[in-house]
Design a protein around this nucleic acid. Structure first.
Lengths: 247, 247
DNA sequence: CAGTGGTCTAGACCACGAA
DNA sequence: TCGTGGTCTAGACCACTGT
């Protein structure tokens, strides 16, 4: 033991953080196993795991069950653009992202009946999307719409069609109103593992509900992003005309 | 042991959460010590502490070292409504909130010059607002506008005038575009102390920039909310007219 | 199957708060 | 001083991944 010998999680995290930020350990590289690291730092696995959890919270480390801990590529922030009316506007604006889509039909239940204003059990088309940028997950989407509004072909297993759909599709006639509610909260366990973030790292959650001119809800989208990877931007343009000038 | 016997942290948290939300344990009340609870649930203290940490993350439990774990008073979420064009739309919608405003003049520097598109050192009117709901801080705002656009009287020490301004003022002519950027991040030390939250609880940060029809930035607002206390909602209404129907 | 991370236990010790 | 929460250890066992 020639160098320093940190003992608490904070010190261990500091040591590993330095090795990562100085390039001593390269992005994408796998860290030694937790057992080995615990021995090296002369701590228990629990203590070492606390250090790794801290680094994961900072977005420096990505944990993959059964494979190892990996140094994450530093990422720039990506914009979620509100009001686009596409399934996942963030993807349309970022061609480097890849999206995998899985579609099924589910009966409406619980919160969904409220969001879509449909009775319990009515059939909904569900699209589960995971967008990935250079191997690291970037966004998670669960999109629901009344089954009869889902475009034909999208529900088939034509992946190319679904890809195009997920990126650019506008849902029939443009929605009359789009309401987007943004909050921050801890991820669910499923979200944490899908996005490979810690359960303490907050996510940015966007609930988007689109309504047509008759007041019918045509789409509800539940979008989840790692808080440190996306900003959401909403723009309102006021039109110049007589009515507004007088009102 | 007549009832259920949860074993994992999640189940224990569920059980305690139920007891809290049903009023079985009252707000302000102290929970049994961690040792006692660990025995009661037949788990180790580490496991029990994970359950309590989860409840703390939900804002249901407050831990005080050396004293115990206490049930916290839950607070409802308040909406931030995007695109209103007032100084603090969340307040306009919530009459129970009180706002304190402090106004000064500062020279533009750093990030502000970029946001407002003004040269370094040009005079800006700054409004620092803290909104409070029933003794607990609810939102923090730093609002900047070019000095010559600030309404007369607002910069004086007329607090009633500032109150009205902060709640309802529309800044001269309505802005042509309002762009709001939302992100989540840990609070700065100042924010954490002003909002009385932990440095680990993320905040919802809204940066609102309003531009008039000439392209001049008329206002930049930096808004900060405790993540567990506010949602932000943005609505877009599409106008029916020939141009949109054809496009 | 072997190797990895994920979870849990029992017990030790330290740090804080109130009597 | 005592009871509380805060941290850590050593070891066991489970769950996931790739061979």
């Amino acid at each position: 033991m020639t160098g320093t010998m940190p003992s608490r999680p904070h010190d261990i995290a500091d040591d590993l953080r330095r090795q990562i930020t100085t390039g001593r350990i390269q992005p994408g590289e796998r860290l030694p196993s937790e057992t080995v690291l615990a021995e090296r730092y002369a701590v228990s696995t629990v203590t070492l795991r606390r250090a790794l959890a801290a680094l994961q919270g900072e977005g420096l480390v990505e944990k993959i069950h059964g494979k190892g801990n990996f140094v994450r590529r530093p990422h720039r922030k990506i914009m979620y653009v509100g009001g686009w009316g596409t399934l996942d506007p963030w993807t349309a604006a970022e061609p480097s992202l890849r999206v995998s889509v899985h579609s099924t039909t589910v009966p409406a239940h619980g919160h969904l009946t409220t969001l879509l204003k449909v009775p319990v059990g009515s059939p909904l088309a569900e699209f589960s999307c995971l967008s990935v940028e250079e191997e690291t997950p970037h966004g998670l989407a669960h999109i629901y719409m009344p089954r009869d509004l889902a475009p034909a072909g999208v529900l088939d297993d034509n992946s190319a069609c679904r890809q195009a759909f997920a990126r650019f599709a506008v849902l029939g006639p443009p929605p009359a109103t789009t309401r987007e509610t943004v909050c921050t909260r801890p991820p669910t366990p499923d979200e944490a593992s899908a996005l490979r973030i810690g359960s303490a790292s907050p996510v940015l959650s966007v609930t988007r509900v689109s309504t047509d001119f008759t007041g019918r809800v045509v789409e509800a989208a539940l979008l989840t992003f790692p808080g440190d990877r996306v900003d959401a931007v909403f723009t309102i343009h006021r039109v110049i005309d007589e009515r507004q000038a007088q009102g």
